[in-house]
Design a protein around this nucleic acid. Structure first.
Ligand SMILES: [Mn+2]
Ligand SMILES: [Mn+2]
Ligand SMILES: [Zn+2]
Ligand SMILES: [Zn+2]
Lengths: 148, 148
DNA sequence: TTAAAAATTTTGAATCAATCAAAATTATTT
DNA sequence: AAATAATTTTGATTGATTCAAAATTTTTAA
């Protein structure tokens, strides 16, 4: 977020509300977190905040393009403020940790071999594997690993 | 499925059951369908079949590698019998239709720019766009398109 | 600065895919 | 054919997300 949250909201004709500002702050500090996690952080700052408001705003912000949503198989939707750069993600099969990885900006990643006549606007890539921590903790088969 | 379903199941030490065979047949005839759809097809052939058996078997078959699961954002899990070739998918934002596309077998698609020390075993790619039918039906903004 | 209008939030209920659990049935092994 | 193991059925349950309506807040306009 180079641009201040307040401006960002104004640019998209969104009301400036306490929950919304807290949400953007929470997301910026905790990339790839789900609605429950964001709610925890926001609720910690604004006791009256509801989970529904988190869902409402996440949807609104995603529609506006202010927030990006990803949904790795087996997890709730994850959100981040890093948008517009078409970066990709690496997900750990063991602990479900998510990391960013930049896009090789090469044709193969952006163009399918057979487009079936589609007008394509996005190539979403998720790399699956096992993270360094989980490689060490051999006892964490299939289970989440606290260290990750 | 080059190999007969019966053999396939035997090879993986799975009991040969009516539901299982019907499921594999249904999946082969309807690639990229969800559990509900598969249940419909199976149930049509075996009146006594339960949805739970479909879920049980889909999980079992995915674990065995006989069936592949994908889960495009906003849809229930989809299943297919085409496995082991690391092919990718194109999904229509308008009608949710799913199509196969072969993998460019090039390094960029298989290797992230920064692996963060992960041991990576799969690169899952989903291309998002609008299919030919939906490009024509301009009135189908955001809604599913019966033609697709 | 205020009243009216519009947008957001809260609250509580509802959906829906998917899973859990236990008893009943079926398949496989002996 | 009996014993054992695996699968299926049935019914309840979970959990993320959405829906809906009343209450509150923000924005707009007077
Ligand atoms: Mn990211
Ligand atoms: Mn496919
Ligand atoms: Zn890990
Ligand atoms: Zn379409």
């Amino acid at each position: 977020m180079k641009i201040a949250p307040e401006e960002l909201l104004r640019q998209h004709n969104l009301s400036l509300t306490a929950v919304r500002l807290a949400l953007l702050e929470a997301l910026h500090a905790n990339p790839h977190s789900d609605a429950a996690r964001i709610f925890d952080v926001v609720h910690n700052k604004i006791a009256a905040a509801s989970k529904q408001a988190i869902y409402n705003n996440l949807n609104t912000l995603v529609e506006c393009g202010i927030v990006r949503e990803i949904k790795p198989k087996g997890q709730a939707s994850l959100y981040e403020t890093r948008t517009g750069d078409n970066h990709h993600h690496i997900v750990c099969r063991s602990c479900a940790g998510v990391f960013d990885t930049d896009c090789h900006d090469c044709a193969p990643c952006l163009t399918p071999k057979d487009s079936h006549g589609f007008v394509i606007d996005e190539a979403e890539v998720i790399f699956w594997g096992v993270c360094p921590s989980c490689q060490n903790n051999h006892n964490s088969k299939g289970k989440n690993n606290a260290e990750c």
